[in-house]
């Protein structure tokens, strides 16, 4: 019986990619509200920043998912040819990745709240400084 490592990779990859996609889309669909608050209703800058953060989120997390994908031998000459090993290894990797993803999600939520608080603190009496230099026509 041949090794089932490649089969495990082929199951692992769609799961983590779809998981990252789902989490990132939910996070940044709801993150728009925070960004609008932070940038005081300037929709273009808020959407642009939101998009940039979303791309960063994809890069970081898909990178991490690929980094932990490799299945090392658990003991010498481990054939890795039973379904039980496939299920257990997959569960361990996907579970660990999902917890990591949850922590990243909470970290992002914390950053949203922090940005919002900062924007409120110096929002009242500060002159609006243009973040992007406007082209003069």
């Amino acid at each position: 019986m041949t090794s089932k490592i490649v089969l495990t990779y082929l199951i692992y990859l769609p799961i983590v990619l779809l998981l990252t996609l789902y989490v990132a889309r939910t996070l940044f669909r709801n993150g728009r509200v925070f960004m609008l608050d932070i940038f005081k209703g300037k929709a273009d800058i808020a959407d642009a920043t939101n998009r940039l953060f979303e791309v960063g989120f994809y890069l970081l997390n898909i990178g991490f998912a690929l980094r932990i994908m490799q299945i090392g031998p658990r003991w010498d000459n481990d054939p890795f040819d039973t379904n039980q090993e496939v299920v257990e290894t997959l569960a361990g990797k996907v579970g660990g990745f999902a917890i990591y993803l949850g922590v990243m999600l909470f970290l992002n939520l914390f950053l949203f709240f922090r940005g919002r608080r900062k924007a409120r603190q110096d929002g009242g009496n500060m002159n609006p400084v243009p973040l992007v230099t406007q082209p003069t026509h």
Binding site: L19, Y22, V23, T26, L27, N30, G31, R32, V33, F34, V87, E88, T89, A91, G92, V94, G95, G96, F97, A98, I99, Y100, L101, G102, V103, L105, F106, N108, L109
Partner: peptide, 24 residues
Amino acid sequence: ATNNILLVGCYAVNLGYIALVVAH
């Protein structure tokens, strides 16, 4: 918005833990 993000985080952490437990 906050509530939805928290819901997804809750799913990720809880389901991740459940899957992680299966490994051993």
